[in-house]
Amino acid sequence: MEAKTYNIVVLLLTDNNAQTIDRSIQSILDQSIYSERIKVIAVDNHSTDGTYKKLLGYVKSNDISVYRLDKRYLKTRQMNHANNLMRHTMHAYMTILEPSDVLYPDYLERCTNLLDDPIKTDCRIIFSEVDLIDDEGKSFKQTPMFDEDRVLRRKKSFVEVFNKGLGHKVQCFYRAGVIPKSLFELPHFVDFTDCFRKAFFLQSHPGIYMRTSQACICKTKYPDKIVDLVSRFYLITRLKVFRDTLNDESVAFLKGLDSEDIYRNLSGLALEYASESLADGETGTARRILLFAEMVFKDIVHSDFYSELKAITVHKT
């Protein structure tokens, strides 16, 4: 049955991306699902490069909704504002599209079909694999997190996804209510950019993993790689403190955080960042990232990759 009013919100976070805003919006307009079911809500982070003007054009031509923030905010605060601005929307599902990203044409249809399925009514979130594209338009494939589509069980899958998704990007599709009304229930720096942070929702909600790529996402470089790594380490540590404070069955699923794997993986991610930094000529940053890699997993210093990066860093210094 056709829906008469929208029940899917695509939240579009824009921030001075006039060059790529058209492709993002076009990818929503090209969705195979009935367009009446979709409402695009753009929250513009006080862009000054023409992005906002373009959005106003889409309001006229395609009836999208737009909110403009009074000034430019940090990404997490932009998300907070967006969350507040959406509190009166009536929707059953939501996905968030970040600047420059595009959805593949059948993304919304596949996701809504899955969550509309009465058998899957418990599932409240879909994690989909994505392709990556860098600023120069070069595309990359990520190694999928799992071998096949699967159900992600609440709590039980959390640590697994948290661990596997450490440096991973995914596109998420949410049933209404998954993202808490107050984002202060989440750490202040949760910015929804990757699977690691999105995995938090699996503490409260079961989900579905889709192995085929459903979107193309920009391989944005973190403005500060060290802060990004420290935040990841913080999130892991915070959960352990939380678990040890409560110390009861309700948090037994967090036992998995004692495994060495997560620290080894975090350290491995740091080496990737260090390698990127060296490629960008940022030797000082690479040197500090190598210290971080050793700090979270001391045995990383015995790996060939670490030795290689260390040698380059020393040579360049």
């Binding site: 420290v230 540590t237 352990k240």
Partner: peptide
């Protein structure tokens, strides 16, 4: 000892610098 505190201190300084720069 659990390393939570130093990580929080580090991120707080970074967060404040970014908030101030806003």
């Amino acid at each position: 000892r659990n390393f939570y505190h130093p990580l929080a201190l580090f991120l707080t300084i970074d967060f404040h610098v970014r908030l101030g720069s806003e």
